[in-house]
Amino acid sequence: MKTQQTNSPWHPAPDTVICIGAGRGEALDAYFPLPVARFLLVEPSPANLPALRRLARQDKRIEVLPYAISGAATPPAHGMLHILNNTTFNSLQSSGQLHELLPGLRETGMTEVALLGIEALIEKAALPAKGDHVLMLEALGDSAAILRRLIDSALIDHFRHVTLRASPDLLFRNDETAETCLQFLQEAGYELRGQEDTDICLTRYYLTQSGLIKEFRAMRARADETDRRLAEQTAALDRAQAEIARLQSASATELEALQARLADMEVRAKRAEGAFKDRDVRMQ
């Protein structure tokens, strides 16, 4: 059942909030009054950065990082950002169904921006391992790739809460729908706590780590590790048995060769003995 999110979904207030695709900070207005220790606002658009830097001057908890975040394993140092007449939809990706859903939307240009991989961002953030952290994914067009990289690298476990802004439609090329992104997160151990419509084609989803699901994942990981070790031991035993069989076969072959050689020597000895007897007879 769809629920509307009216209060902060983060209880208690987190230590760190990382917002990827922070825009001008509007999505965080309700959270700045909370006793959050640190806000990292990641935004590549030159038009949006001045507003974020003003916020940072007013609030020492805020740090602005002027990057576009990539889910690629080794992203280039720079990329091209598509600029639209509604900066909410600025993206590294070219549009898919976006213009069909919003006919008045148009691209006004492209600009080169600095790129940072999601793993490099987490390293730069230096998140305490035992902290209570929030990831806000507001970057349209790249959320699916970022989530895949976070989940594959297990870095998603840094975040107790994830906020995802996504669409049921494929707004951008090389992206996934909200349903697919939510499936990624639910398989990674997150439960959907609420959602709200933020635009005609966008919804913001609030997810929290499930202790039971996380425990189940840990148990399954331990079981998988046990199976892996058992398979290794079984393979090692098979190799040892094969080596024993080879040695036994080699020993049997060597024994047969020795027996054949001994039999040949006995035949030769008898022949030599007969030859000596014949010689003795002739000498008499």
Rank of each mutant, 00 (worst) to 15 (best):
K2R: 14
T3E: 11
N7D: 15
P9N: 06
D15N: 11
I18T: 05
C19F: 02
A22G: 01
R24T: 13
D29Q: 12
F32M: 08
A37N: 11
V42A: 03
P44L: 04
A47W: 12
A51L: 11
R54Q: 12
K60F: 06
H78V: 14
L81Y: 05
I83M: 01
N85A: 00
Q97G: 07
E100G: 01
P103I: 03
L105F: 11
T108W: 05
E112N: 03
I118Y: 03
L121Y: 01
I122Y: 10
H133F: 01
L140V: 00
D142L: 09
I146Y: 04
I146C: 06
R149M: 05
L155S: 04
F159C: 04
D169Q: 10
R173N: 12
A178Q: 01
T180I: 03
L185R: 03
E187G: 14
Y190M: 01
L192H: 02
L192E: 02
G194N: 09
T203C: 09
Y205H: 08
K214S: 14
F216P: 03
R228C: 04
R228S: 12
L230H: 04
T234W: 09
R239K: 09
R239V: 09
A240D: 14
E243H: 09
Q248S: 15
E254K: 13
L262Q: 07
L262C: 02
